[in-house]
Simulated scan of single mutants.
Amino acid sequence: MAGHAAPDLSDALPQAAGLRLGLVAARWHEKLTDQLLARAEAAAAACGVTDVTSVRVAGSVELPVVAAALAARCDAVAAFGVVVKGETEHFEMVCRSVTDGLTRVALDTGVPVGQGVLTVHTEQQARDRAGLPGSPEDKGFDATVAALDAALTIRALRD
Rank of each mutant, 00 (worst) to 15 (best):
M1H: 14
A2S: 14
A2D: 14
G3L: 12
D8T: 05
D11L: 14
L13R: 07
Q15I: 09
A17I: 04
G18L: 08
L21C: 10
G22W: 01
L23I: 10
L23P: 01
V24D: 02
A25Q: 04
R27Y: 06
R27T: 03
H29N: 14
T33N: 01
Q35M: 08
Q35R: 13
L36A: 02
A38P: 06
A40M: 08
A43E: 03
A45V: 11
T50Q: 15
T50F: 07
V57G: 05
V57T: 02
G59I: 00
G59S: 06
S60P: 02
E62S: 05
L63P: 07
A72Q: 13
A72G: 13
R73V: 15
C74K: 11
D75S: 04
V83P: 01
K85R: 15
F91E: 08
E92K: 13
M93N: 15
V94R: 07
R96I: 10
R96K: 15
S97C: 11
D100I: 04
D100S: 14
D100M: 14
G101Q: 05
L107M: 15
T109D: 11
G110I: 05
V113C: 04
Q115K: 10
V117W: 09
V117A: 01
V117N: 00
L118A: 00
H121P: 06
Q125A: 13
R127H: 12
R127C: 10
A130P: 00
A130V: 08
E137Y: 11
K139A: 03
F141M: 02
F141Y: 10
V145L: 10
A150P: 11
L152V: 10
T153P: 06
R155M: 10
R155G: 06
